[in-house]
Amino acid sequence: MNRKSMKKYGPVFLLPTMIAFAIGFLIPFVLGVYLSFCEFTTVTDAKFVGLKNYLRFWKDPSDVFLHSLAYTTAFTIVSTILINVIGFAVALALTKKIRGTNLFRTVFFMPNLIGGLILGYIWQLLLNGVLAYFSRTLKYNEIYGFAGLVILLCWQQIGYMMIIYIAGIQNIPGELIEAAKIDGASSSQMLRFVTLPMVMPSITICTFLTITNSFKLFDQNLALTEGAPSRMSEMLALNIYNTFYGRTGWEGVGQAKAVIFFIMVALIALIQNRLTRSKEVQQ
């Protein structure tokens, strides 16, 4: 096939994907942004109200958006650090020549195959079972909920990040390691000056994934704490959901929050990408 006919028929082959992309992403997105400027009960009878939705919730006593923002940020920081540090450590351990690495890799990866809601309910049972000895439950205060969510997300994501780190570590050229060894590098120097710089691309991907995943966390939050008590363990995504579905007349406000949320996630992801990317080395 020559270039000319490629140009001619290219769009035809792209069309199905573009249609799917438009239906599944573009149209809902545009509609969603439009609805954030509207008041509505069902999405088909929206009425334009301008910026009202964007201003309405900041001062409302029953709305905990700012608390959710702070809570989510704290959660994202803690879980991103934990997941990546532990995930990397496990990856390091499992790239050493020890027996049963394949089995361990599989086992560590498995939790990632279970859906968030199910995980949430299972961990709720487990953690409540332990806390019951102290006459407490996960919903006693937001600290318990926070710890529970961190444990849950670590358990779920460490295996996934581990796989990415393992791939990165295995990609380090053997001669580089050999040269470092001949130069007499200690194992901590190896880690600091060889392994870490070489797996920087993996770190970029993993931090990106964990930051956005933690920031957007919904299922696990809903299943584990439902935001209780007093919506104090409610993260941003759940806060938006509750605003949209839980509060009559506030559908548009939920939509407005979702737009703000989108901008925040996009900004954070871009900044993070730039920061870690700049530390990557050319192989």
Partner: peptide, 21 residues
């Protein structure tokens, strides 16, 4: 007046019962 009212009362009841409010 609203679901939100009920939820807020419920939350306060719970916190009072637990001793956290």
């Amino acid at each position: 007046p609203s679901e939100t009212w009920k939820n807020n009362v419920g939350s306060a009841l719970l916190e009072y019962a637990q001793g956290t409010g």
